[in-house]
Computed example of a mutant assay.
Amino acid sequence: MNEHSGDTPIPWRVWTVPNLVTMLRLVGIPVFCWLLLVADEYVAGAIVLAVGGGTDFVDGYLARRLGQESRFGRLIDPLVDRLYILVAVAALTLEGLLPWQFTAALLAREAVMFVTLLLLRWRGYPPLSVHYVGKTATFIVFMSFPALVLAGLPIDPPMWAQPLGWALAWWGIVLYWLSAALYVGQAVWMTRPGQRGEMVAQ
């Protein structure tokens, strides 16, 4: 969720429509884990993932459309996105639907971003502004997971699920690393003498 233009400060408000959407997405994370790891309901789990990932843009759109942008929303929205990806990757890896190489590549990218943001915070800089490449990469990675879950059905998995899932997964991870490079470059630029900006990276 972006800041208002100008110098008007963004209020810290929790009970807004876009924040409610974000909270509902957050509730979907344990529901997905239960469906996949406990109940073995792959189709239902894929639906929860698709809804959780497909509504990634909804909360930000509603915040701008309704004039309900908030500091809480700017904090919780990228956090939920990151939790969705990390939890989904962990669950799919445990179920044998993702190879460890893919998981390692994604976790390494997260480690790079964590260190970058930690160093910026330590030096007193604000968080990084979200880049459209990062949002696009997050969405594509999200959308690969439901297809990969369906590809793991023990009986009659859809023929399209595996090729589509892996096409999205590898395309998404490449963009994910590209966005990390852009964020690191942005951080380096920000820390140059006389440069200050605003950033929450995706």
Score class of each variant (00 low, 15 high):
Pro99Ile: 12
Thr136Ile: 10
Lys135Met: 08
His131Asp: 09
Ile140Cys: 00
Phe139Pro: 00
Val80Ser: 02
Leu117Thr: 11
Ala63Pro: 02
Asp81His: 06
Val112Asn: 05
Trp160Gly: 07
Leu66Gly: 11
Val174Met: 12
Phe102Tyr: 15
Ala91Cys: 14
Leu148Gly: 04
Gly67Trp: 09
Thr136Pro: 01
Ala167Cys: 13
Pro78Arg: 03
Thr116Tyr: 07
Phe102Lys: 05
Ala151Val: 10
Pro163Glu: 07
Tyr176Ile: 06
Ala147Thr: 02
Pro126Phe: 11
Gln101His: 10
Phe139Cys: 10
Ala91Gln: 04
Ala169Trp: 02
Ala88Arg: 01
Ala151Trp: 03
Leu66Cys: 12
Leu128Asp: 02
Ala91Glu: 05
Ala151Gly: 11
Gly134Met: 04
Tyr61Lys: 12
Phe114Ser: 13
Arg74His: 13
Leu150Val: 08
Leu66Phe: 13
Asp156Glu: 15
Gln101Pro: 01
Tyr61Ser: 09
Asp81Phe: 03
Asp77Met: 12
Phe142Ala: 09
Trp170Glu: 09
Gly172Gln: 01
Tyr61Thr: 14
Val87Ser: 06
Gly67Asp: 08
Leu119Thr: 07
Pro157Asn: 14
Val130Gly: 01
Ser70Ile: 11
Trp177Ile: 13
Pro154Asn: 09
Trp171Ile: 11
Tyr84Val: 10
Glu69Ser: 13
Gln68Met: 14
Gly96Trp: 12
Trp171Asn: 06
Ile76Ala: 14
Ser70His: 12
Gln68Glu: 15
Leu97Phe: 08
Leu175Cys: 04
